[in-house]
Amino acid sequence: MEFERKSEGDIELVLLKGDMDSHTSPKARDFFAGVLKEENKKLVVDLADVKYISSAGLATLIEVFQKMHRYGGFLKLCGMNDTTRGIFEIAKLDSIFAIYETRDEAVRSFSS
């Protein structure tokens, strides 16, 4: 699993690449721990290059959401394929996360 990090103003962008399963999600967890150390208030995670996300991957994103929520930050997700969206739906997570089609939409939502 690969991670790419960018900034657009005060918005932090994270691009995930590869499968996010029980083997790779601990690595993602460590990566996000580093990102959240700075207590960024606005974070967009782009899942366009994630083909498969397991329950362990979802739990990792929920933990990011929980940590940000605790310090008053906002996590937005974008770029999900249909399978990933189905996984979010069946886990009833589509009501917890702010989910956008594209990265631009997710970024713009912070200014609206």
Binding site: A56, A91, L93
Partner: peptide, 18 residues
């Protein structure tokens, strides 16, 4: 798995919710 207990706790909640 070698997942952290916190992650497992979240997964358990998700599975039961499903």
């Amino acid at each position: 798995t070698h997942l952290d207990k916190k992650i497992i706790d979240i997964m358990v909640k998700m599975k039961l919710a499903q």
